[in-house]
Amino acid sequence: MDDDFPLPEVDQTNKPFWDGLSEGRLLFQKCDDCNYSWLPARQECPKCLGANYTWIEASGSGVMTSWVVYHTAFIPAYKDRLPYNVAIVKLAEGPQMATNIVGETDYSNFSIDHPVELAIEKEHGVNVARFRLIGAE
């Protein structure tokens, strides 16, 4: 089953993102021309279309825009993890990402716009950016 696990597909564009996580840092792209910040990795700024950007380390704080709890494993590798959550987190610096919330399985403690902080975890040998709720009871 582990052979089926959907690991990130690393390419030339997103390699700095995954390398950053392996070093314990969450990075996002910031446009050198218009200062817009974004994820996921792209070769051009989606705001001004310029191709000059710098990878910046995120503070790791953000808010949870929304979340869902899977009761169905759409791919076999997740069967043993049901029910599991996926959340959308908006970083303090602006970029948004799909992620998981760790350290809390009582979903009555979840609410939209709840503050979260970065909690990098190893997943099948690869560091991934997950988050935990701040100030949960």
């Binding site: 696990f5 959907p6 690991l7 990130p8 597909e9 690393v10 390419d11 564009t13 997103n14 995954w18 994820l39 996921p40 990795a41 825009t65 929304s66 979340w67 869902v68 899977y70 169905t72 759409f74 791919i75 997740y78 993890r81 599991y84 996926v86 959308i88 990402m97 799909a98 992620t99 998981n100 609410s111 939209i112 716009d113 997943e123 690869v126 991934v128 950016a129 997950r130």
Partner: peptide, 29 residues
């Protein structure tokens, strides 16, 4: 079903139903 360049699949973020569920949750909140 793939991991994706952004790791969305790695986080288990798959299926159309989940996309609409995410929207529904926000609307409820």
């Amino acid at each position: 079903p793939r991991g994706g360049a952004d790791g969305s699949g790695t986080h288990g973020w798959v299926s159309t139903t989940a996309g609409y569920a995410m929207i529904a949750r926000r609307h409820m909140g």
